[in-house]
Lab assay of single mutants.
Amino acid sequence: MSIQHFRVALIPFFAAFCLPVFAHPETLVKVKDAEDQLGARVGYIELDLNSGKILESFRPEERFPMMSTFKVLLCGAVLSRVDAGQEQLGRRIHYSQNDLVEYSPVTEKHLTDGMTVRELCSAAITMSDNTAANLLLTTIGGPKELTAFLHNMGDHVTRLDRWEPELNEAIPNDERDTTMPAAMATTLRKLLTGELLTLASRQQLIDWMEADKVAGPLLRSALPAGWFIADKSGAGERGSRGIIAALGPDGKPSRIVVIYTTGSQATMDERNRQIAEIGASLIKHW
């Protein structure tokens, strides 16, 4: 067993022997301040990774656009098919120029040779490549099948209805392509620590998230040296922004954090800054 596999296998073990965790309302004060600064709703939840206990939450059962955070769930569904012998990570998928959609920095470079399922998941999570996500959605049967996968996990809230990039439209009061912070946090925890996926697939999923290259201005910008984070960000229309993450000190994750916002007129930089400040408060009061 590799060191990384050992780390993920012992996530519940280490967490069980940690000192009790206590909620700190100071972080919620910052979440509410972010709402004021952005002029928009902000949803927040913080779960203990081992027990699933909610440590703090704000608007945990209000719907927010998922945006690209759905790509972690998508690759979880792909990995479940791999575990069941219905898919192979090494299978190569070929596609054409007509398949390319807006923001496809990886797939646009491989029109000639195609990409493997493993490479597509890596591109979808680490670079948020939209064509990679659409190609992977095709392998599982489309958005409705991802929703069905989530329902089978016990998540009857999260739903995907459309493809990239239309799913980022974020129309107010439109339930399409949305989740709730509580539902997303619980589902992410199941994917990373539950028995739904094999140990190898859980490790692969967290490795992809740990290698995320496009979430630097968010929670990662607030992390002290030595902290662990595996995350996936999302951005959408109407001032929408979000991030889902597993993080913790001492090089291992111990909490799940989900943050979503929508309806702001603020710039992307300002949305990023507010999420980073929430992260800084979380870490300060850990």
Rank of each mutant, 00 (worst) to 15 (best):
Pro25Glu: 10
Leu28Cys: 12
Leu28His: 15
Ala34Arg: 02
Ala34Asp: 02
Gly39Lys: 08
Arg41Ser: 14
Gly43Tyr: 00
Tyr44Cys: 01
Leu49Ile: 15
Ser51Arg: 07
Gly52Trp: 05
Ile54Met: 15
Phe58Ser: 14
Phe58Lys: 15
Arg59Cys: 04
Pro60Lys: 09
Glu61Asn: 07
Arg63Cys: 06
Phe64Ile: 02
Pro65Glu: 02
Met67Thr: 11
Ser68Ala: 01
Ser68Tyr: 01
Ser68Gln: 02
Phe70His: 07
Val72Cys: 07
Leu74Val: 14
Cys75Gly: 11
Gly76Met: 06
Val78Ala: 10
Ser80Arg: 12
Val82Thr: 11
Gly85Pro: 01
Glu87Gly: 05
Gln88Asp: 15
Gln88His: 14
Gln88Phe: 15
Gly90Val: 10
Arg91Ala: 14
His94Val: 07
Tyr95Ile: 08
Tyr95Arg: 00
Asp99Ser: 09
Glu102Thr: 07
Val106Phe: 15
Val106Asn: 15
Thr107Phe: 02
His110Trp: 14
Asp113Arg: 09
Gly114Thr: 04
Val117Tyr: 04
Ser122Phe: 13
Asp129Arg: 01
Asn130Asp: 04
Leu135Val: 10
Leu136Trp: 01
Thr138Tyr: 15
Ile140Glu: 04
Gly142Tyr: 03
Pro143Glu: 05
Lys144Gly: 09
Glu145Leu: 11
Thr147Lys: 06
Ala148Gly: 09
Phe149Leu: 13
Phe149Thr: 13
Asn152Ala: 12
Asn152Val: 11
Gly154Glu: 13
Thr158Val: 04
Asp161Trp: 02
Asp161Cys: 06
Trp163Ile: 06
Pro165Val: 07
Glu166Gly: 14
Glu166Pro: 09
Glu169Thr: 09
Ile171Glu: 15
Pro172Val: 12
Asn173Lys: 12
Glu175His: 14
Asp177Tyr: 01
Ala183Trp: 13
Ala183Asn: 14
Thr186Gly: 12
Thr186Asn: 15
Thr187Val: 08
Arg189Gln: 15
Lys190Glu: 15
Leu196Phe: 11
Thr198Cys: 12
Ser201Gly: 09
Arg202Ser: 13
Gln203Gly: 06
Leu205Trp: 04
Asp207Met: 09
Glu210Gly: 12
Glu210Cys: 08
Lys213Val: 06
Leu219Pro: 05
Ser221Ala: 15
Leu223Ala: 11
Ala225Pro: 10
Ser233His: 02
Gly236Asn: 10
Glu237Asn: 11
Glu237Cys: 14
Gly239His: 04
Ile243Val: 08
Ala245Arg: 01
Leu247Gly: 01
Gly248Glu: 02
Gly251Leu: 12
Gly251Glu: 15
Ser254Glu: 09
Arg255Tyr: 02
Arg255Met: 09
Ile256Arg: 01
Ile256Cys: 13
Ile256Gly: 04
Tyr260Pro: 00
Tyr260Gly: 01
Thr262Trp: 08
Ala266Asn: 11
Met268Asn: 14
Asp269Asn: 12
Ala276Gln: 10
Ala276Leu: 12
Ile278Asp: 00
Gly279Ser: 12
His285Arg: 09
